[in-house]
Design a binder for these strands. Sequence first.
DNA 1: AATGAATGAGGATTCATTCAT
DNA 2: GATGAATGAATCCTCATTCAT
Lengths: 193, 193, 193, 193
Amino acid sequence: MPKVGMEPIRRAALVEATIHEIGAQGTLDVTVGAIAKRAGMSSALAHHYFGGKEQIFLAAMRHTLRLYGAEVNTALRAANTPAQRAEAIVKASFANSNFRPEVIAAWLNFYVLAQTVPDAKRLLTIYQARLRSNLVHALRPLLRARADEVASRTAALIDGVYLHQSLVKSKAQHSQAAEDVLAYLDFELKETM
Amino acid sequence: MPKVGMEPIRRAALVEATIHEIGAQGTLDVTVGAIAKRAGMSSALAHHYFGGKEQIFLAAMRHTLRLYGAEVNTALRAANTPAQRAEAIVKASFANSNFRPEVIAAWLNFYVLAQTVPDAKRLLTIYQARLRSNLVHALRPLLRARADEVASRTAALIDGVYLHQSLVKSKAQHSQAAEDVLAYLDFELKETM
Amino acid sequence: MPKVGMEPIRRAALVEATIHEIGAQGTLDVTVGAIAKRAGMSSALAHHYFGGKEQIFLAAMRHTLRLYGAEVNTALRAANTPAQRAEAIVKASFANSNFRPEVIAAWLNFYVLAQTVPDAKRLLTIYQARLRSNLVHALRPLLRARADEVASRTAALIDGVYLHQSLVKSKAQHSQAAEDVLAYLDFELKETM
Amino acid sequence: MPKVGMEPIRRAALVEATIHEIGAQGTLDVTVGAIAKRAGMSSALAHHYFGGKEQIFLAAMRHTLRLYGAEVNTALRAANTPAQRAEAIVKASFANSNFRPEVIAAWLNFYVLAQTVPDAKRLLTIYQARLRSNLVHALRPLLRARADEVASRTAALIDGVYLHQSLVKSKAQHSQAAEDVLAYLDFELKETM
DNA sequence: AATGAATGAGGATTCATTCAT
DNA sequence: GATGAATGAATCCTCATTCAT
């Protein structure tokens, strides 16, 4: 039992536990105690490391968004043409790591958190801006003036698919979801060529 | 002051208050007391009429969905061509009565409620099925086999636009939102003709 | 068990219990639960009626100060000469109802509360001002210019005697304490005559 | 940095920090963590050196009383006549080092501590006895039989002035306070001569 | 000597819900 | 029909204290 340098380990465990707990309950109505228990520690320690429930939630958000961002970046780096770039972004959005029931539920609840907690709103806004920016960048060479419009629509479509998926607790069919959005993109792109 | 016949009035007042309260707080974390106060009665009476908090929420959901359904039906009745029918559905989705901050926030939270409360999930599922069915019905003559796909996409797009709007507390630009989705539909339809 | 008009009864019971509890513990470190229990109700009800611990304390202070003020007024009304008035004030300060262990301990702790809670400080300041004013008024005809000085000193002496008494848990000897201060006053007055 | 011989330094730092913390908060409701932080060490170390919160408080009391005692002794050694001795005691009571806001607040809270902790009561009782004894000793040659009475009164007056001062957060006017009590003493003494 | 890690216990506060009137 | 009265249960958070290193 190491007694030093526990902080990053504990924090990571709590963040992980928070996402799973929110996912399991489908609500932000989870107790710090439940999160801490799942993370294998006392609720007092959770408070010690994060200062409060809200900060725990925010850390979980940051973690989720960071993971998502990393997924997108990795996918982008493997893409060579504009079309591949756009496709990469969409596929990353529905990658296995993101499109799991608990993450979908967490995502939905982050939107709720954003209604109340300014920092949460800020995080989500940044995420949306980055997503749109990535899409515009990929689509500009192909769609010119329409790139903005299509990017916005694609972004909304992605979130809409997530929202729908939150109702279907059955194993999330990520390939299906990705295909759905990709079909739309293809449609737009074929049109132009 | 008649003592009888108050029930429907009280219930309506509570439902109305619930939506506003959820909208104002942006959360389901509203107290029965706050709802009852806004509705001008004691929380005990709220319980008397609804039996519990969950039922109050469900009533608020039913009310919201019913309003939305009515809006769609009215619009549909004024439409004559398939294209007009599709357009009517989209426009109704963003009508003034639906696309207001408090209703948007309530809508988001209904999705959260659906994660926990089976009846809530059922209601939302019914809503989605009806929306899709309406869209398919309208689009079939125009898009044939692709009608299902486009209907699904349109439905997801509508919800995605709602979700995005929940982050922008500024006065919801319903016309803008409707145009957004309609542009997509036009795009699909022109393609075919 | 009457179910209506309980508020004043409950509030009075809580105030009473608060003073006794502070007296018994000798500290402000009493729990709302303990106070409520002593008053025969749940802590939730205590919060319902007072809004919070601080307000309970403040109500207890107001009650104590009001009782003291009443004692003084009653005594003053029975006094005819200036000398009798001064004596009445001192005697009232050490009357049975005030100079009991629990009240003495409460008094001490009110001074502590006043370090933190502005309203508490205000109450104590008002009490001191009134005491001094009463004394000055009584002493002016006898001591002329020295009335202010002697009044201040008498007031400080009264509080000092209280403070000393807080250390002696044995049955407070109020007559002794009153005599103590009265001896000082007599000394001042004889000097002048 | 020597690892040995730290104990007295650490203890002194903690005692000092305790008085300042109590003074700053106006309450005994200070955390060991806050005290330790102010003293520049971990709360674990504070426990290591003192064994517990109560002992830290008691050490702070002892320190304060010892300082006061030293101040009195120094002043007494410079006094030659009985009258000078009495005056010296009073002046020492309001010396700059004692009559500062934080010390006044600490003093008040020591009285509270004495309600609960027997050792604290013992310390305060000893202090009072010593003060009275010093005063009696000084006053006996001048006042004979009345020395006891006047000593008691003076002691009570000193504490009363402290108590009043605890309400006035403005810079403690020690000279004023001392004059106040000295005026009383002069009055008693002139009377006799 | 010194501290980060860790927790159990406790306390203020909130709230849905029940009940007597 | 309507409400004030009342509470149990739950939750966040704090803190003194202990312990391994």
